[in-house]
Write a protein that binds this DNA or RNA. Structure first.
Lengths: 230, 230
DNA sequence: CGACCATTTGATATGGATCAAGCGATGTGG
DNA sequence: CCACATCGCTTGATCCATATCAAATGGTCG
């Protein structure tokens, strides 16, 4: 599970480097407007939709500030979260012409946007750009495979994996600030909010973590969590 | 779920087209031998290992005849199957330097092999090859995302998805010849063999399928299965 | 302060796992 | 060609982890 923590290295950012980010003030759904430049910047309010299921996959996105969830709502109303994206991470790399997942800002979020067609035509001329696109998609594949393996495990293992992964990705030592709700975590891990809550309480009783507030987690004994994983 | 059925179009095969396939007779683990050509062919016996976890990711593979499973064995001994690959499908596209999954022949299987380094250097010169590598990885990502969504559903939904997907991919109308065991199916769907068996029996009682033998399935009423999906 | 929403905690229900036979197909040696 | 052994599949009985339902607590914002 920890292998996925290295999943978006800085060399991939060149895609977003052309042109100084020029702030464009827009609401949700304004993406389909006339953004042709690479590296255009947009802001989204908490819970605002960045793109919806079945919309055309016209852009790549990079989180500057805030956090993003991608998700799909299933027939029965259940919601599966595909991934969380934190600052410096890239999303929207879906393959087909239309998005299978939707994307929303979890908190107020700033994002860079690149038109897919621009990136692809650059890739046709510059093999290092092509290589980056491939690598990014490969990293996303690896992340998804790890997520898939996660769903085969017990509730405690899933939550432990999640905490260790978040600690690694937010790079703030043993103190994690969770931007997402229990419902988000549950929908990511395939558990109910009650089960997530109970496991966290259990970890706290076992002195593996502290929960100063419900959004802040402090890892007190990583080895207890680590032992649950393989 | 059905979107994934179109996941490896023929345009991707150019990777394997250089040089007439020259049969090389080898056993498992012989991959690390001196295969430098593109499109070299190898045969594997039922249950033979094609590559193992942690081996270097030096090749891409394409099934010519037979069937392949990729899998990972977890700490507790459970085995998660990542995917099944049927004739004309490509596998081994993992991102890192080492395989996270192992690959085995499910039945006696013939495979084409391409050295990864050769494909990559061709991609650096030919942007259509680069594009194909990217597309293939993207298709694999889509397949994995669908697999992930599958694991959130009930046992009946998982089995129904599996049957419809196999029917589509084996392109033999309503009659499916399953190369894999119940254990394989269970490990793919995250269910026990008992549950897989019970669901199949239930589908037969509901007149959705026939089971002339345990390896052959005839879809009698796809709409019953379809109704379980979204 | 009060209303609202998210989270935690408690009690009960359930889908699929586990444990345990039985059954059927496939292959082997006589 | 048949008797028997083996292995994979099916069927049945019971158990358990997590879901579901319900209520209490806590945190946030007007």
């Amino acid at each position: 599970m920890l292998t996925e923590t290295a999943f978006q290295n800085d060399s991939c950012c060149r895609l977003f480097d052309r042109g100084g980010p020029n702030e464009i003030s827009v609401g949700p759904h304004a993406l389909s407007g006339a953004i042709e430049l690479m590296g255009a910047s947009m802001s989204f309010k908490r819970n605002a939709e960045i793109y919806g299921e079945q919309e055309p996959t016209d852009y790549f996105y990079k989180v500057v500030r805030g956090a993003v969830r991608t998700y799909k709502v299933l027939m029965d109303g259940r919601r599966q979260i595909g991934a969380f994206y934190l600052p410096d991470e890239i999303f929207g790399l879906e393959t087909g012409d239309e998005h299978v997942f939707s994307a929303e800002a979890i908190v107020d979020t700033k994002i860079l946007i690149v038109k897919r067609s621009v990136a692809i035509s650059r890739a046709a001329q510059d093999s290092t750009i092509a290589r980056q696109l491939w690598t990014l998609t490969g990293c996303e594949l690896q992340r998804t495979q790890n997520h898939l393996l996660l769903l085969g495990k017990s509730a405690a293992e899933r939550v432990a994996s999640f905490l260790l992964e978040m600690a690694d990705r937010s790079q703030s030592g043993d103190e994690i600030r969770l931007p997402m709700s229990r419902q988000d975590i549950g929908d990511y891990l395939g558990l109910t909010i009650e089960t997530v809550s109970r496991v966290l309480t259990r970890f706290e009783k076992d002195a593996a973590i502290d929960l100063p507030t419900c959004k802040r987690v402090v890892l007190r004994d990583r080895s207890i969590l680590q032992r649950l994983l393989d």
